[in-house]
Design a protein around this nucleic acid. Structure first.
Length: 267
DNA sequence: AGGCAGGTTCTTA
DNA sequence: TAAGAACCTGCC
C-alpha cells in the first residue's frame, strides 16, 4: 500500500541513527523488523512511500511504529540557529530522523548487548539471537525471541551469539521477564525517576543502557543517553553546557541529531 | 601484537 | 563515594 508522509521521514537516516538494529537496506528499500512483525518499505516519490503490508497492518502497527503522530519538523523548529548553531546544523543534517516506537523488551535486550560493541557487531549478535531463538516468520526471516524463548536457553547455547560477557546479562533480564519478576509494560506507568531506578536494578543495565531503553523502548523523548560520541560532542562543543531546559521535553530528539551528525560528519 | 569499541560490575581505598 | 581494573569478542 502507498502512504503519503509530509513530516520528516528519511529511511536511510533512521536506519543509520543507531536506535534500531533490524532495519536494513535491501535492494531499493528497507527491510524492517519489530518483534515478530516485518515490513518492506521503499520511497517511491516525494513524500510517497510504499509499504509491503495491508492498510490494516499499517494502521494497526506501522503507523505507530514510525511515530507518524509526532511532528518532528516542529521539534526541530525549537532550535534557534543563533543560540545554538552547532545543534542547528546537526538538525538540518539529521532532518528525516524519527524516534521509532519500538518494543520495550526488544530494546532492553538489544541495548544490553550494545555495550562496548560497535553497530555492526550489535546487529550481528542480534541477528544470531533471532535465528537461534526466534521463530521463522517468513522466508529466512526470524522474529525477535520472546522472553520465554531466551530464558529457555543455556549460557552455552547463547554463546553462539557472540555476546561475550553480556550473555549472563541477557539471560537474566529475559528470565526476570519470563518469570514475571518484572513487568516492562507495567513500568510504563512509572514516572521518569521510578522507571530509571527500576531499569538500574537490572543486572547489566547501567545509566547509558537505561537511558537508551527509556528513549527508544519507552519513547520518552526527553531521555538523553550519553555514549562516547555524545560525551565527545559535549566536551568539544558544549563546554559551557547544553541547554537542556530549552529543549525539554525533547532532549532525546536533540541527542539523536547530535549523535548522528557527530558520527557522520567527524567534527 | 596490542589497543580499542555506543558500558557495567567488581574491587579496593 | 570514587577511582581503577576486569570483562568477551572482533577488527584494525
Amino acid at each position: 500500500m502507498k502512504v503519503t508522509i509530509k513530516d520528516d521521514f528519511d529511511l536511510q537516516k533512521i536506519a543509520d541513527s543507531g536506535q534500531c538494529f533490524r532495519f536494513n537496506k535491501e535492494g531499493d528499500g528497507y527491510s524492517v523488523f519489530s518483534l515478530d512483525k516485518h515490513v518492506f518499505v521503499k520511497q517511491v516519490g516525494e513524500c510517497e512511500y510504499e509499504f509491503d503490508c495491508t492498510q490494516k497492518e499499517f494502521d494497526d502497527f506501522w503507523y505507530s511504529y514510525f511515530d507518524i503522530d509526532t511532528d518532528y519538523r516542529q521539534i526541530r523548529g525549537r532550535i534557534d540557529p543563533k543560540k545554538d548553531p552547532y545543534l542547528f546544523k546537526a538538525s538540518i543534517y539529521g532532518e528525516g530522523i524519527r524516534i521509532l516506537r519500538q518494543d520495550p523488551f526488544e530494546m532492553l535486550i538489544s541495548f544490553i548487548i550494545s555495550q562496548r560493541k560497535n553497530i555492526p557487531a550489535i546487529k550481528a549478535s542480534i541477528e544470531k539471537l533471532c535465528r537461534l531463538a526466534g521463530k521463522e516468520i517468513g522466508k529466512d526471516k526470524f522474529s525477535f525471541p520472546r522472553a520465554e524463548d531466551i530464558a529457555a536457553l543455556s549460557l552455552e547455547e547463547l554463546s553462539g551469539c557472540s555476546l561475550g560477557y553480556r550473555d549472563k546479562y541477557v539471560l537474566r533480564a529475559a528470565e526476570a521477564v519470563a518469570h514475571k519478576d518484572i513487568d516492562l509494560f507495567e513500568w510504563e506507568k512509572c514516572d521518569d525517576k521510578g522507571l530509571m531506578d527500576n531499569l538500574l536494578g537490572l543486572y547489566g543495565v547501567g545509566v547509558k543502557v537505561a537511558n537508551c531503553e527509556i528513549l527508544f523502548g519507552y519513547h520518552r523523548l526527553d531521555a538523553f543517553p550519553r555514549d562516547v560520541w555524545i560525551n565527545r560532542v559535549l566536551e568539544n562543543r558544549y563546554q559551557k553546557g547544553f541547554d537542556f531546559e530549552r529543549y525539554a521535553p525533547y532532549n532525546g530528539v536533540m541527542q539523536q541529531y547530535l549523535f548522528f551528525y557527530s558520527r557522520n560528519e567527524n567534527l
